[in-house]
Every structure is written in structure tokens, then in C-alpha cells.
């Protein structure tokens, strides 16, 4: 009986004010931060907003989710809530009414975030840039990181654009960490 009960010395509890305690705590928080940072890059969540598009670029974006192109195997999910999202995909031109919605969505997303503008209309207004109600491309309202051309942009190009956006994400995360 006595052999089974191991004679272990109880661990000495560190005092919260001591330096050793603070070091251990910082190391644990650092590990969690690295895990989250890696998860963001390895499995970013998308928010897709159609800003005024003819639907061509939208259905190509949705086609990326479907079994032939399948970005879900990379862990990318299309979410509806801006507070859950890392990447904002915008299609279509900006007009006077939806520029306010676009700005609100961008402001609600938490940092760090990446904006990808898809299609000729989101870049500069496309074929409609001379229309009266059109303000122009998406970069008139919010800062854009990646531009994907095409009318409409093909799914392969959209996936390339998202991957390029993820590389920018890494830089932004590094920048945020240095600034902390």
C-alpha cells in the first residue's frame, strides 16, 4: 500500500506578484497568441459583400465554395457576421447608397483584416464608371489590399487573390505585434 502511494513533494505555488509567475503567464499567453495567429492564416473566415454588382462576380465567388473549386478544404468558411470575419471580399461598383453600408461593415470587422476587391467594377467602376449614380471603385471608400481583375473574375483568380491576401495578413499581424 505504502509503495503505491507515491511520496511526492507538493509543488511550491508561485506568488502572483513574483517575477517567475509573470514569466510563466507571459509564456502561456504568447503560446495562445501564436496559435490564434497561425489559425487565422491557416483557416481565415470570409465575409462576402455584394456592393452593386451584376451578380457575375458573386456567383464566381460562391462557385469557389462548391465541390469543383472547394476552398472549404483549406478551412475557409463563408460567414455572415462581420465580427467573425478576417477577409472581406467585395464585388461591384460603389454607389451613393451602398457606400455607407460598406463603410459600416468595414468598421465592424476586427483587426487585422484584409480587403479583396473582385472584378472590374470593384476596381474602378468597370463599364459603368460614367454612370451618374456610380462613385467608382471600392478603394474610394475603404483601403483595398488585393485587386482581382476580370469581368467576371474567374474562380482560379479569386482563390489566387485570397492567398495573396493571406500573405499580407501575415505582414499585418507582424506589424501589429511589433506595435503592441
Amino acid at each position: 500500500m505504502d509503495e503505491t502511494v507515491k511520496n511526492t513533494k507538493p509543488q511550491k505555488r508561485l506568488k502572483p506578484s513574483s517575477d517567475a509567475f509573470k514569466q510563466v503567464r507571459e509564456a502561456k499567453i504568447g503560446l495562445i497568441r501564436k496559435l490564434i495567429a497561425k489559425a487565422r492564416i491557416k483557416s481565415p473566415w470570409l465575409l462576402h459583400f455584394d456592393c452593386g454588382s451584376c451578380n457575375g462576380c458573386d456567383i464566381e465567388t460562391l462557385a469557389c465554395l462548391t465541390p469543383v473549386y472547394d476552398i472549404e478544404r483549406f478551412g475557409i468558411i463563408n460567414v455572415g457576421n462581420p465580427k467573425h470575419a478576417d477577409i472581406l471580399l467585395v464585388t461591384g461598383t460603389v454607389n451613393h447608397r451602398n457606400k455607407k453600408v460598406l463603410k459600416k461593415l468595414y468598421d465592424q470587422m476586427p483587426d487585422p483584416k484584409v480587403v479583396v476587391a473582385i472584378g472590374a467594377c470593384a476596381l474602378s467602376g468597370g463599364i459603368f464608371r460614367e454612370c451618374d449614380n456610380v462613385v467608382g471603385g471600392v478603394d474610394r471608400v475603404i483601403p483595398v489590399d488585393v485587386f482581382v481583375p476580370g469581368c467576371p473574375g474567374k474562380p482560379e483568380a479569386i482563390i489566387d487573390g485570397v492567398i495573396l491576401g493571406l500573405q499580407k495578413f501575415v505582414q499585418k499581424q507582424k506589424g501589429a505585434k511589433d506595435g503592441d
Binding site: 452593386g52 454607389n95 449614380n133
Partner: peptide, 14 residues
Amino acid sequence: VGFVHRGLECLVAK
């Protein structure tokens, strides 16, 4: 409505 309005019918002039 009005979020997607581009007014493209006016492009006939241009």
C-alpha cells in the same frame, strides 16, 4: 432598394 442602382439606362447617351 437602391443599393445596386447604377443607372445604366443613361449610358445610351455616352
